[in-house]
């Protein structure tokens, strides 16, 4: 059974994400801040993480991603470094900073714009899970 962690402080976005993922048969675990997201990663070892950016701080999601992908071998998140991350953000389309998954300084695998377009979102999730299981 595939487990997906959704980290978002907006309950409506959380609900929308959760319902879409559950409709496709995934198990969804929720966290409502970057910090609790990190704790849930260690607790649940999910197969994929959906991460909001602006939470307790305007860049909380980025910090969560950076902690999870830390290149330091002694990092407490080293065992979870491989988990694919989808960043849920509005920044991608509204600011001139075009950071994509190809840019090394933000270590995430995909961006999904808000509001969530269910079909496209599910497609991204399925692609990432497929890549992870058949690298």
């Amino acid at each position: 059974m595939v487990k997906i962690l959704v980290v978002d402080d907006d309950p409506d976005i959380s609900l929308a994400t959760k319902l879409v993922l559950e409709s496709a048969g995934y198990t969804v675990i929720e966290a409502h801040s970057g910090q609790s997201g990190l704790e849930k990663v260690k607790l649940e070892n999910p197969d994929l993480i959906v991460l909001d950016v602006m939470m307790e701080s305007p860049t909380a999601g980025f910090h969560t991603a950076l902690a999870l992908r830390s290149p330091d071998p002694a990092s407490e998140y080293a065992p979870y470094r491989h988990i694919p991350i989808i960043t849920l953000t509005a920044i991608h389309q509204t600011t001139p900073i075009r950071f994509g998954p190809d840019e090394s300084y933000l270590p995430v695998d995909a961006f999904v714009d808000k509001p969530i377009e269910p079909a496209q979102f599910l497609k991204t999730v399925q692609e990432l899970l497929a890549k992870e299981s058949h690298p």
């Binding site: 907006d10 409506d12 976005i13 609900l15 929308a16 994400t17 319902l19 879409v20 409709s23 509005a90 808000k114 509001p115 969530i116 377009e117 269910p118 079909a119």
Partner: peptide, 15 residues
Amino acid sequence: VTGAQSLLRLLLGNF
């Protein structure tokens, strides 16, 4: 607004 729109799309997508 994005919250509301995400929820509306759930309804429209028959989820």
